[in-house]
Simulated assay, not measured.
Amino acid sequence: MIPKLLILLLIVLVVTPYANAAPLSDKTGLKFTLPVKTDGHSFIVEATGNLDVTNLDFDKEEKSITLFIQSSLENNSLEISFPNTLIGGDYTILLDNDEFIAEIQTGSNVTFVTMDFSGTGKHKIEIFGTTYLDFFEIRDVIDFDISDGYVDDIEGNQSTNSLIFTLFEPGDDGKLSVQLSDDVITPFDDGSFIVLIDDVESDYIIENDNIIINFDSNSQQITLIGTYVVPEFYEIAPLVLATSFIGLIILKKYKKLFV
């Protein structure tokens, strides 16, 4: 009985992956999911290979991703994927402080870096970009005008289909005018919107495709609610990245069918 239990325990130890890794296939090895949080934004860096990724460092000043590797094999294969908005532009890859020529494929949202290199033990991989947090801000596509005050921030909330304008130094005769566009926010079926000023429903008028909202010096936040609001990129980045990886895994699994 005891030998059987020992054999079962050994099998479990062999097939159980690291806590932060998930096995994909014999060819691709382990997939590591590595979160990066910087300047209020969250991103995911993925690494897939026949080795262990022990840690990740991100340096926004250097615009760099650093992976620390531990390998027990002589021939190593690694694929790294990250959103272009985290770092982008022209890339430079270093392996153990020496420049490395990797295969780089940059899509509209995600960059893939593929590396094959030799050597057991510890390795350090550094990926340097030339841009950082280069992504679409929702205020860049909203045409608005404000008098007797300033707009400090604009947030698009998909869960409530709303645009939230945070005010700064509002005056008693304040007026916010937002040009309406279905690319940004769409109205209800009757063409109306809901406007809240500090969570209290307020009146508005629509003139020449502009919604005009009056506010006073006590106003802090104006919320415009419709049936759809355009998402900011960092809200959809995890979904885009996950979709890209599903396609990548399927392609790798069935690649031999196309050769």
Rank of each mutant, 00 (worst) to 15 (best):
G121N: 06
T66C: 04
T223M: 10
L67M: 02
N84D: 09
L196V: 01
A242S: 15
N218W: 07
N97H: 11
L239V: 15
D39K: 15
L51C: 07
M1G: 15
F112N: 10
N157R: 14
D172M: 05
K253G: 13
Q221D: 00
S159K: 13
V36N: 14
E74W: 11
S244P: 02
L196Y: 07
K31E: 12
G171N: 04
S64Y: 04
F128K: 14
D140Y: 12
I69G: 06
L73D: 08
Y18Q: 11
G29E: 11
I205Q: 07
A242Y: 10
A102C: 10
D52S: 15
F144N: 13
I211G: 05
A19Y: 12
D216R: 01
T85N: 05
I2D: 08
T223A: 05
E99R: 11
I246K: 08
S162Y: 06
S72T: 10
P83S: 03
I206H: 08
L95C: 09
S64A: 13
Y204H: 03
I206G: 05
I185G: 12
A47D: 02
D148H: 15
T120L: 10
E207T: 15
I206L: 08
S177H: 04
E99P: 03
Q158M: 13
D59S: 15
V259F: 13
I44K: 04
L224P: 00
H123L: 02
D39C: 00
I7S: 14
T160G: 01
L176G: 10
P23A: 08
E201V: 06
G49P: 03
T16P: 03
L248D: 11
D173M: 14
L13D: 06
G226I: 00
E235D: 14
G121D: 05
Y234A: 01
H123G: 06
T120W: 00
D189F: 07
T28Q: 12
Q179M: 12
P23I: 05
K27D: 06
S77L: 06
Y18L: 12
F100N: 03
R139Q: 14
S244M: 02
L78P: 02
D190W: 00
F144H: 14
T166P: 04
D198H: 02
F258D: 05
T166A: 11
L6A: 05
